[in-house]
Write a protein that binds this DNA or RNA. Structure first.
Lengths: 165, 165
DNA sequence: AGCTATAGTGTGATGTTATAACATATACAA
DNA sequence: TTGTATATGTTATAACATCACACTATAGCT
């Protein structure tokens, strides 16, 4: 079992996060028999350049930094694919996207419920996986006779590192 | 104490909801010494026409239904005012707005934390006020050394009435 | 009443995010 | 190789939101 990840440290070796995520993505796509094409991989790499959520048009600009002519549609299609396959999440409060931190090559599941902490100072977003929170949420909803399809939980504030400054 | 409101019934007498909300809004604005101007009241009325969240440009269209020339900016300004004063909420997952169901004329507070249930079938959104959920959330966040500014909780699914069909 | 500071609104342009619709290309299996 | 499903290219447009600056109304003061 992965223990609950702590908030990403400002000085961690991010190349490892990124490389690991890309590797797992390959594995997952192979297992699911879906194609991680060039454009999809490029978008995924850009998303994984940091733990700060990135907008679709930022991704687009990075793709086109060399003078390319990729259109918005291509980016949105790639993001849709990546979300379907649980490789990225969309943050509704920011209209931005972030790599999924809970990649699990074994599990056949695609997108999973996620909760996020978003630092207003450094912009970093961390995926939260709190069983008690999920339980409380599930229960509160069930009590009202409501059936869950999907959930959005996005908490904005100060991360431990920025708070310490 | 208000007990937890149930999901709005499809056949309830909505004119009462609406009228009550408008009355409370008057009271709250008077208490806070802020001005519920014509345009702000008009927007609030439109928002309260139902329990289905409404987009800014829908509001605009309704304002201009008689041939008016109100601009988007005016609507966004009114919505900003109404949100600051806790009279409406914004649903990030829908880019839409809904009247606040927890108006409390006594409390001097403005916007408060809210959680929403959104029915994918009828579109109705209900404000949830679950103490256990809030506790679980606060605790999960605190454990990670994160300080909350604001939170978004939006749960999409089927409401009891639509599920029964 | 007249003055003034502040709050509110009008207006036009523009920025940002996302999708529709249809054409073309590529991968893979039969 | 030929058919089919998947993926991408391309153009236009929809949907959501804000900036900047001018003008107006209101409340509080003298």
């Amino acid at each position: 079992m992965a223990k609950s990840a702590s908030f990403p440290k400002p000085d961690h070796d991010h190349s490892r996060c990124s490389a690991s995520a890309l590797r797992k993505a390959e594995t997952i796509c192979a297992a699911r028999k879906v194609r991680l094409t060039d454009i999809r991989r490029d978008v995924l790499e850009i998303v994984w350049k940091s733990h700060v959520p990135v907008g679709a048009y930022d991704i687009l600009a990075q793709l086109n930094a060399d003078g390319g002519r990729t259109a918005p549609m291509a980016v949105y299609r790639a993001l849709e694919f990546l979300m379907e396959n649980g490789l990225v999440h969309r943050l509704a409060s920011l209209n931005a996207f972030i790599g999924c931190a809970h990649l699990n090559a074994e599990s056949g599941e695609g997108h999973h419920a996620a909760q996020f902490l978003i630092c207003r100072a450094c912009g970093t977003a961390a995926e939260l996986e709190s069983a008690p929170l999920t339980r409380a949420l599930t229960q509160a909803v069930a009590e009202r006779g409501f059936t869950i399809d999907s959930q959005i939980v996005e908490i904005s504030g100060l991360c431990p590192h920025c708070a310490a400054l």
